[in-house]
Amino acid sequence: MELLIAIIIGVLTACGVYLSLRGRTFPVVLGLTFLSYAVNLFLLIMGRLTIGSPPIISDNAANYADPLPQALVLTAIVISFGMTAFVIILSLKSFLEMGNDQVDGKHRP
């Protein structure tokens, strides 16, 4: 299972890095989304992999998953939504004002 997670996070990171290096705004926004998936998963698994024991206190639970990374990631998801929303609107605005969707805001020959 650890191997699968490692591969998934690795692939997500690679996709994110590749897309964020593109020259148009829309792929860069996609790339940032990929990077936030990767980072959120990465943060979560810092509490190691635990199956079937959510951090909800109950009398018959033997052990719990680490709640701290989960709390961090929960707000991180919402914040990355805010960021993605801001960036996509920014790219829309830049497209409308510059007349093109180059990340550097200018036409290149």
């Binding site: 698994i45 199956i51 951090p55 719990y64 998953a65 989960q70 929960l74």
Partner: peptide
């Protein structure tokens, strides 16, 4: 991986 809150979010 036991994070129902995260899944919902």
């Amino acid at each position: 991986f036991s994070a129902p809150d995260l899944a919902l979010t």
